[in-house]
Amino acid sequence: MKILKLLSFMLITLLVLNCSNDDDNFQPQIQPEPTTQDLLISGKWYWISSSESTLDDCQKQSYLEFIDLDTLLIENFRINSSDVCESNGINSVTYQLIDDSIIQVTIGTDTSNLNIEFISDTRLIITQEISSGTMTTLLEK
């Protein structure tokens, strides 16, 4: 019986001595905030509303998809003459993010600037100067 007690004591002592104190210094990994570029390329941004017009359910299927650091896909949906919602096709254009606040879009030889007013994981608000003033567009994932 003494041998069993001695072995038990030695086993417990060995376990206690071998436990690491790494857990005492545990520091959670702090995730860096995503950059504007990270947020842009994280999925499709669907049109929700525009200050220039009321969007119907068909138009709300339209989206922007930032594929990489310079490619932007744009797909617009409209109701055709037969009252059917259809895509106008997917257009691939180039863009450049300037100072994390301006998306410079180039379509052919035309360039326009979209000002990022707000961006989060799920919401993007952009403004654009047009002939009648400033158009504000809300997009969401």
Rank of each mutant, 00 (worst) to 15 (best):
L15H: 03
Y95Q: 01
D57R: 01
I98M: 00
E52T: 00
C19I: 13
Y46W: 08
W45M: 02
E75H: 11
G108I: 03
D83M: 06
P32Y: 09
W47V: 03
S92C: 04
S82C: 09
V16C: 15
D23N: 13
I67S: 13
Q37D: 09
L64H: 09
V105M: 07
N88G: 11
S82A: 14
N91M: 08
T35Y: 10
K60I: 02
D70F: 05
L64A: 09
S53P: 01
E65L: 08
I74H: 00
L72W: 07
Y46R: 01
D57Y: 06
G43T: 00
Q27V: 15
T109V: 10
I103R: 00
T106K: 13
D23S: 13
N76F: 15
E52P: 01
T111L: 04
P32V: 11
S50E: 05
Q31W: 00
I102F: 10
I107Q: 13
L64F: 11
K44R: 15
N115R: 03
G43Q: 03
I79W: 04
Q104T: 08
I79M: 14
L40E: 09
Q61S: 14
L55Y: 04
C58H: 11
G43M: 01
L55K: 01
V16Y: 15
L64E: 08
E65C: 03
D23L: 14
N25E: 12
E86Y: 11
I79S: 11
S112E: 11
Y46E: 06
I103W: 08
D23Q: 13
Y46A: 02
S87L: 04
I79A: 13
G89D: 13
T94R: 11
D24S: 10
N21T: 15
C58G: 11
D57W: 04
D110P: 02
I90Q: 15
N25D: 14
C58T: 13
S92H: 07
K44L: 05
N80P: 00
N80H: 09
S51G: 03
L73N: 15
T109S: 15
S81C: 03
C58Q: 10
L73W: 04
S82V: 07
T71L: 06
S62D: 10
Y46S: 01
F77N: 06
I48Q: 02
D83E: 11
C19H: 14
E52N: 08
D99V: 12
V16G: 10
I30H: 09
D24A: 14
Q59L: 03
T106C: 03
D100Q: 05
L17F: 00
I41M: 07
Q104I: 00
D57V: 02
Q29D: 15
I41A: 03
I41N: 07
K60M: 03
R78N: 11
E33K: 05
V105L: 06
I30S: 14
D56Q: 01
F26E: 00
D23G: 08
D68C: 10
S87I: 02
E86W: 06
N25H: 14
D100P: 04
Y63F: 15
I102Q: 07
N91Q: 09
S42C: 05
E33N: 05
C58N: 06
